[in-house]
Computed example of a mutant assay.
Amino acid sequence: MSTAVAYPVLRTTDLTDALTAAHRVLRIADLSKAEVYAHAKLTTVEELLRLRAAVPGAWYCTESAVVGADGEPVYGFLEEELPGDADDLAGLLPLEFTEEGQPIGDVPDGYEETFLSAVGAGPASLAWWWTTWPAVPELNLHPGAKHAEVQIAVHSADLFREVPADTHTLYVYVGPREAARAHWIAAQAGLHVIGPGLWDG
């Protein structure tokens, strides 16, 4: 078993630039099995209401259990299960917005832009999993699917939305000992690796 390594290839204050660059990287990959994963940490009612309106139907996770109507602990809510009252919503914060495993062909047009424009100032992530990198014969690299991912870490200095930042970082994921593939991918998209690889495990 091995762990992917994420290499930063762009750091910017402009989410549009980050998404545009991510699409350039994704054009290199086989996306036939790709899925989209979106996460955002929400700390204010305003952020929650904005994202709830922009991207309905998501799952919202609590950091610690709250007591449900039946007296049992609850760790998350479907969007339609969230209370409508602002005070009740405030009592659930912080929450994490989660939409995982959406086949890329089923994602509505404009979903990525809508999500990124609604996330607010907190850490968030937009990622594409289960992509496949092409073979690179000159580097003796076969097609790579096991660790082929792309991620925009939004307002985050790490991969897991734990370290807030004023910038957004685009990462390409490759297998261990595949730094050369990361540099090759970045170059094909008009980018370059700008820092050391980060283990995602």
Rank of each mutant, 00 (worst) to 15 (best):
G76E: 00
P176A: 15
H142W: 10
D200F: 03
G144D: 08
P137C: 11
S156I: 07
L141D: 06
T98V: 15
Y171C: 05
A86Q: 13
A4Q: 07
Y111M: 00
A22G: 12
T43N: 11
T114M: 08
A58D: 08
V150M: 05
V67P: 07
D88A: 15
E79T: 12
Y75W: 09
W59N: 03
A127F: 01
A118M: 06
A90S: 13
S64H: 10
A165Y: 08
D17I: 07
A145K: 13
D200I: 07
Q102I: 13
W128M: 04
I28S: 04
W59S: 02
G71K: 00
G190Q: 08
T169D: 03
Y7L: 10
L78G: 15
R24Q: 14
K41L: 11
E72F: 11
D109G: 13
K33G: 07
D85Y: 07
A124W: 00
Q151G: 05
G122Q: 14
P94G: 08
E47K: 00
L42E: 09
A121Q: 12
E100N: 15
G76N: 02
V9I: 15
V150K: 02
V119F: 03
L198M: 11
I194A: 12
T13L: 03
T16M: 09
I104W: 05
L49I: 09
L42R: 06
V9T: 08
A121K: 10
L92R: 10
T132L: 10
V36A: 01
L51I: 15
T13A: 06
P137T: 12
M1A: 15
A86G: 00
T114R: 12
G197P: 00
A22V: 00
G76P: 09
E138W: 08
I194V: 15
E138F: 02
T3A: 13
A34R: 02
L170F: 05
A187W: 06
T16A: 15
D70P: 09
P196E: 14
T132W: 00
G110E: 00
E46D: 14
A127E: 07
K41C: 10
